[in-house]
Write a protein that binds this DNA or RNA. Structure first.
Lengths: 206, 206, 206, 206
DNA sequence: AATGAATGAGCATTCATTCAT
DNA sequence: GATGAATGAATGCTCATTCAT
């Protein structure tokens, strides 16, 4: 009974969470009302408040959940690789996985929502993003160590270039609704472009 | 008399316009109420409605105004140049000018607002953005003709890389509040990076 | 010039008047805004206020104008007749003329608007209606004198019956949109019914 | 618990309903604001919206409620009688009961509000009124069968005459605020007038 | 004779949220 | 674990009206 009850409860909570994510992703935080979320789930408003303190909490929990996805993805697609180029490739395919598996949650991660939200939400997102940037910086240093990046390279620019393109791809998918944005062909094209323009071929060394 | 009246009227209208732009830029369209705008300007609500049909019209007019800025900037910073590299440099400095002169309006141009707005607004912005992408494509072709870009280059990737970086700079300024994002030093750094990684040195021709 | 100006002025005033009458008749006093009237006429709001003190004045003037119609009609269709039955017939055809010539103004005369308006308006209408009822009473007395009505007839009931039917006809036309309500055939039918049921044949006298 | 809650809820809902009816009856639909209704009841605006979707719904529910009254009255005062004259008398006393028991709701039934309302409301009222007219027609046919009405009588005119008088009485009460309009003496007077002028004495019976 | 610009007061409606149950 | 009933505050928007010109 406890289990059942727990399961049911967890289910309700999760249904609210998912519905809210989808609605927020489609219409933006401000344009979605508690009522709409509840209608989508089929519960009454006090039920939502039973699980989530208030509307802002909902979005904060979403950001944290998203952050877990990001970390898992990073672990599975980037950290487990040793070769720098494989990490870079993992970056692309990890984003693809994220964007296709959790499309609603992706939007909260995407920097794009930093505009037009509460200061609290903004702060939370920045807090979560900065370490990611640092980690990415570390990867680039590894790239240098592995000889894929020249020692005198401007790493900051390199980072900006790569992240800018990643975000560009996301925009093509979500804003311009270009379905092929994350197709394997396109990702390969991006990878080729990067390899050709941004990275060295370390084999020469040997 | 006519002049005075016109001037006064134009002034009121413009003050509403500017105040709305600033508020929208800071808090987002949904979180700014008509009342707030009016209080910021010091007029009553019907006055705002005298000049603007409704709230959505306000934002649509802002988008169009922004579009004019974009076009003017492009003319002054890019189109008037002949050398491809100068055009690219103009792209950077034009963006700097835009971002620093009309910071509020920049946000409407930035893709960032494409999320979480009315479908009407979204449609309007996409309509305005697509030709800009085309024009930029044409510039890259010129770059090829001038020998700055290899004939077999993947122009689409090149475009995405450059625009992604531009948007990244804007994000650094507006989201991370990094004032130096558009400093001359930084722009030069970006330019150097591009020149080194993305463009050829056409002197070989001669 | 004075004449011209006067004429033009009178014209504007009249156009406002007519447009307001039509709109009021169609949608009711409360649901028609000054703006709507002005848009229908093609003038600005202060112009309306130049001719009419306020919205209530507009409707009061309409009531008075309507009253003039009523009086003219009564003169032309009833008073000029000497035979009682001709007066009654005139009542029917006068109403027909009114209803078809000034359909918009008829509605203000019709008691129907006594509901749901300002107390001032209500009072004005009652003031204007009471004498009409008196006059009609006098006609019935004439009918008695001419032998069309029995000396012991309940004149009040008679009046109520006739007026009730007249109003019923108007309702059929305006509420149920029954075009034939005031057709000559129908009026004749009403007249026949009255003659048969309500009035005597005075010829017996002679 | 359920009962208590239900009772309380039903009470609030009903208080809103009654207050709205009274206000609408006195001032007309357009001139009564949601706020006024709420103040009269002593609840906040969202409470009203909890029970009624919007203002138009309020009036539509009122019309339907009124229609139920009408049907009950008809059943109790007219349908249960067998003699035609008793039905006619029931018509008068049923109207009296209605007008005196539910004065506010009477006004919605009275045709008078057909003017100057939403098309939706108008349509609803017409839909509800037409069958009533038909039923009344059937009663007149029964009158014919019982010998109170000549076989060649113009039944339509007869109906119009009777209904016109009924409406006239209502007008005297509500517009001219003549309290005696529905006094027993007056109703008897009406009945006598009808009997004398409109109906036969079905000698066959005796 | 006519208007452009402005307003104070009010509208219907919706918001996020709470409390007793 | 869930809800029916209620609310204070705010929303976008419109009203009749005025004043200087």
């Amino acid at each position: 009974m406890n289990n059942l009850s727990n399961a049911k409860s967890e289910d309700t909570r999760n249904r609210i969470f998912q519905a809210a994510a989808e609605l927020f992703a489609n219409y933006g935080f401000e344009r979605v009302s508690i009522r709409q979320i509840c209608e989508a789930v089929g519960v009454q408003k006090p039920t939502l408040y039973y699980y989530f303190k208030d509307k802002e909490t909902l979005i904060l929990e979403m950001i944290r959940f998203t952050q877990q996805i990001v970390q898992t993805v990073r672990k599975d697609y980037v950290d487990c690789k040793t070769d720098f180029l494989e990490k870079i490739r993992g970056l692309l395919y990890g984003r693809k996985y994220f964007v296709e598996t959790y499309p609603h949650f992706f939007r909260f991660y995407a920097m794009l929502h930093l505009f037009s939200t509460t200061e609290k939400v903004r702060a939370e997102m920045i807090t979560l993003m900065l370490p990611l940037l640092d980690e990415f910086g570390a990867i680039l240093v590894q790239g240098q160590e592995q000889g894929y990046i020249a020692p005198d390279e401007d790493l900051e620019m390199l980072m900006q270039t790569i992240l800018g393109t990643l975000n560009g791809l996301s925009m093509r998918k979500f804003v311009f609704q270009e379905e092929a944005a994350f197709s394997d062909e396109n990702l390969q094209r991006v990878f080729d472009f990067w390899q050709k323009h941004l990275f060295l071929n370390p084999k020469k060394r040997g």
